[in-house]
Simulated assay, not measured.
Amino acid sequence: MAETKTHRVTVAQRALLLSWAGVTDLGRRRETNQDAFLAEFPLFVVADGMGGHAGGEIASRSTVERLQAVVSAGDVNGPAIEKALEQAVGDIADHPETTDEGTGTTLTGVFFAITGDHAQWVALNIGDSRVYLLRDDRLVQVTTDHSVVQELITAGKLSPEEAEGHPYSNVITRAVGASELTAPDYVTIDVRAGDRFVICSDGLTKELTDYGIQHFLREHRDPGHSVDAMLAAALENGGRDNVTLIIVQVEDEDDSSSPIEDTTE
């Protein structure tokens, strides 16, 4: 079973407990795993690499390693993340095995941030990996895909159902790669007890619908059990790509669902 980890923070004179688990898997049709993830408070991200030979694996790993250094430095914020991505682009470009101009990686996730006296989540995204939020028993996609089909959907030229089988369904319009530097999109989210985030590569969403993701969140409260169940279902449904996901959930002792203000120093 995937290991569930926890971090406790005192907020608004209450104990706020964050718990999470993550897993990555080769899938059933790939020869290499080009996904990577980082799940360490306060940053939780998934990177889905792309590129010939070992390129995708190098791109995702380089990006996650640079972000790990940001966590270790203890100052996770937008500018620090963007600086790390700039460094990752250099790492990818300089690596001897990343000669393919298409080499790069998606990046998506959330980090826990404090602005003034308030705690909040900040979701970030480059590419078509996704962040979902289950709140009040309703699942919503927090991030917006950077993909050709999403642009067509937004323009009203394609329905979500038609997008699933579109020939350009895997073509993304933004990436962290050797040939470009792109800042993430950011979405801020208030911190509420009971919230559960799913951060995943498209290897999961190719095999599970939003309804399926919501089903497994409802069935399994422990993040470790949830990620194991979703991974097993994705593999059973075909496992056509590498599958990576992280689940992060928020609880407090009095089970309140109101917004939380952070009072830690």
Rank of each mutant, 00 (worst) to 15 (best):
M1C: 15
A2M: 09
H7N: 11
R8E: 14
R8S: 14
V9G: 03
V11R: 10
A12H: 09
A15S: 15
A15M: 14
L16G: 08
L18G: 10
S19V: 08
G22F: 03
D25A: 07
D25S: 03
R29Q: 14
R30P: 02
N33W: 03
N33I: 05
N33F: 03
D35A: 06
F37L: 15
A39W: 09
L43D: 06
G49F: 02
M50D: 00
G55K: 01
I58D: 07
A59S: 09
R66G: 08
L67N: 02
Q68E: 10
V76M: 14
K83Q: 14
A84K: 02
E86D: 14
D91V: 08
I92T: 00
D94V: 09
D100K: 01
T105V: 06
T108E: 02
F112T: 00
D117I: 09
Q120N: 06
V122K: 04
I126P: 01
G127A: 04
D128E: 03
R130Y: 07
Y132T: 00
R135D: 05
L139K: 04
Q141E: 14
D145C: 12
V149W: 13
E151H: 13
E151K: 15
E151P: 04
L152F: 15
A155E: 12
G156C: 06
L158Y: 11
N170F: 03
N170P: 05
S179G: 11
L181S: 14
L181Q: 11
T182F: 10
Y186M: 10
Y186K: 10
I189Y: 12
I189H: 12
A193D: 15
R196V: 12
F197K: 00
I199R: 14
C200V: 10
T209M: 13
Q214V: 10
H215P: 06
H220M: 04
R221S: 08
D222T: 15
G224F: 12
G224V: 11
H225P: 12
V227M: 10
D228C: 08
D228L: 12
D228P: 06
L235N: 11
G238H: 03
D241Q: 05
V250M: 09
P259Q: 01
